[in-house]
Simulated scan of single mutants.
Amino acid sequence: MISEQANKIFDQAITDYHVHNLIDAQLKNPYSKHSLEHLLYLKCWIDTVQWHMEDEVRDPSIDPVKGLLWKRRIDQSNQERTDTVEYIDSYYLDKFKDVGPLPDATINTESPAWAIDRLSILALKIYHMQLEATRLSASPEHRSQCNAKLQVLLEQRADLSGSIDQLLDDISSGKKYMKVYKQMKMYNDPSLNPILYAEDPKV
Rank of each mutant, 00 (worst) to 15 (best):
residue 8 K to F: 04
residue 14 I to G: 01
residue 14 I to H: 00
residue 15 T to K: 13
residue 17 Y to Q: 04
residue 18 H to W: 05
residue 19 V to Q: 15
residue 19 V to R: 14
residue 22 L to G: 03
residue 23 I to Q: 12
residue 25 A to F: 02
residue 26 Q to V: 14
residue 26 Q to P: 02
residue 27 L to A: 12
residue 27 L to G: 07
residue 29 N to I: 07
residue 29 N to T: 10
residue 31 Y to D: 07
residue 34 H to P: 01
residue 34 H to D: 15
residue 40 L to M: 13
residue 46 I to E: 03
residue 50 Q to S: 00
residue 53 M to G: 04
residue 53 M to D: 02
residue 56 E to C: 12
residue 56 E to F: 07
residue 58 R to G: 00
residue 64 P to N: 12
residue 65 V to L: 14
residue 65 V to W: 09
residue 66 K to W: 08
residue 67 G to Q: 13
residue 71 K to M: 14
residue 72 R to H: 13
residue 72 R to C: 11
residue 73 R to C: 04
residue 74 I to A: 05
residue 74 I to F: 02
residue 75 D to C: 06
residue 75 D to R: 12
residue 78 N to H: 09
residue 81 R to I: 08
residue 82 T to C: 05
residue 86 E to C: 01
residue 86 E to T: 01
residue 87 Y to W: 04
residue 89 D to Y: 03
residue 89 D to H: 08
residue 90 S to I: 02
residue 92 Y to I: 01
residue 94 D to H: 06
residue 94 D to R: 11
residue 96 F to K: 10
residue 97 K to T: 08
residue 100 G to K: 13
residue 102 L to P: 06
residue 102 L to I: 09
residue 104 D to N: 15
residue 106 T to S: 11
residue 107 I to V: 15
residue 107 I to H: 14
residue 108 N to R: 13
residue 110 E to I: 13
residue 110 E to Y: 12
residue 110 E to G: 10
residue 111 S to Y: 05
residue 111 S to G: 11
residue 113 A to V: 07
residue 114 W to P: 00
residue 115 A to E: 06
residue 115 A to S: 14
residue 115 A to W: 13
residue 122 L to I: 11
residue 123 A to H: 04
residue 123 A to E: 03
residue 124 L to S: 05
residue 126 I to M: 01
residue 127 Y to K: 06
residue 128 H to M: 06
residue 129 M to E: 03
residue 132 E to Q: 02
residue 133 A to H: 00
residue 134 T to N: 12
residue 134 T to R: 02
residue 134 T to D: 11
residue 136 L to I: 10
residue 136 L to P: 00
residue 139 S to T: 13
residue 140 P to H: 07
residue 142 H to P: 01
residue 142 H to D: 03
residue 143 R to T: 00
residue 145 Q to S: 08
residue 146 C to R: 00
residue 147 N to I: 00
residue 147 N to D: 01
residue 148 A to D: 09
residue 149 K to F: 00
residue 149 K to P: 00
residue 150 L to F: 05
residue 152 V to T: 08
residue 155 E to A: 12
residue 155 E to L: 11
residue 157 R to C: 05
residue 163 S to A: 15
residue 169 D to E: 15
residue 171 I to Y: 03
residue 172 S to Q: 12
residue 172 S to W: 10
residue 175 K to Y: 06
residue 177 Y to Q: 09
residue 178 M to H: 03
residue 184 M to V: 09
residue 184 M to T: 10
residue 184 M to C: 11
residue 184 M to R: 12
residue 187 Y to D: 13
residue 187 Y to N: 13
residue 189 D to N: 15
residue 191 S to D: 13
residue 193 N to S: 10
residue 194 P to I: 10
residue 195 I to M: 09
residue 197 Y to M: 10
residue 200 D to W: 09
residue 202 K to W: 05
residue 203 V to I: 14
